[in-house]
């Protein structure tokens, strides 16, 4: 049998596609989180990072296309497997106990689809940057290079409590999804044993908690006022008491 047929047409093949696309996305989100945590450094840091990413040009587009394809495959397989699973029991039991399945494992479809809805919003908000979804200012790096002011864009977004809450809930659901997904993945590709799985489940929970805390810290810090807008041209900028710009203005008049 052709390998594509195995992956797209057989029960185990489809599961393997779920697992591999899931793993690729896990790799991506870890990198993405590390990138985003640069928000805690001075604005130049994350602005220069975003500028570097955009400077990748065609390579950036290739990575984006690859990730979108990965996501599409993951969701497509999720839908297909779910429909097949529903069809495999046309008449449900009147009463059925849950013997062992974890709560996270029983809510994979729900958590997955809410994350999907969030992802669409998130891409419109920060990648496509639809007018009205946020504010998209510009600034210059220390060497004078004009760049997009990603720092202010993020802080401005997260100063809205509702947007922040939506982000926090969504990364919470993603972490929830991964607390089962990370273990499930190993079973699907055949790398599982009792002892290893006990260890792995704990590791997956730890990873999910850390991943959640890392992500929640970003809107959290903005809401708490720890991270502020530092670009004087952006609404919401608050002058520090002794500001060089203001002192200069005062000296002129």
């Amino acid at each position: 049998m052709n390998i594509l047929q195995v992956l797209f047409k057989t029960s185990i093949g489809k599961k393997v596609l779920m697992a591999v696309t899931g793993l690729i996305m896990v790799g991506f989100i870890v990198g993405h989180l590390i990138g985003n945590l640069q928000l805690f450094a001075p604005p130049e840091k994350i602005n220069a990072y975003a500028h570097f990413l955009e400077g990748l040009g065609p390579a950036l587009w290739a990575i984006r296309a690859f990730l979108l394809l990965t996501l599409a495959l993951h969701v497509w397989m999720a839908i297909q497997l779910t429909l097949e699973n529903k069809a495999a029991r046309p008449k449900d039991y009147t009463s059925q106990q849950t013997l062992r399945a974890s709560y996270a494992s029983r809510t994979m479809r729900l958590s997955g689809f809410i994350v999907l809805a969030f992802l669409i919003y998130h891409l419109l908000h920060f990648t496509v940057r639809i007018e009205g979804f946020g504010t998209y200012p510009h600034t210059t790096l220390l060497d004078g290079t004009p760049v997009r002011d990603v720092h202010s864009m993020m802080v401005f977004g997260f100063q809205n409590v509702w947007i922040s809450l939506f982000y926090i809930i969504s990364v919470g659901l993603l972490s929830w999804h991964l607390s089962h997904g990370l273990v499930s993945m190993f079973q699907t590709i055949g790398l599982q044993s009792r002892a290893w799985s006990n260890f792995l489940s704990k590791l997956a929970v730890l990873f999910s908690i850390l991943y959640f805390l890392g992500n929640a810290a970003i809107p959290g810090a903005v809401l708490a006022g720890v991270v502020k807008i530092e670009n004087p041209e952006v609404a919401g900028y608050v002058c520090p008491a002794k500001c060089a710009v203001c002192e200069a203005k005062k000296a002129k008049t």
Partner: peptide, 9 residues
């Protein structure tokens, strides 16, 4: 038959 979702029921 359906597909395994690794819940071990």
């Amino acid at each position: 038959f359906g597909n395994c979702t690794n819940q071990y029921e």
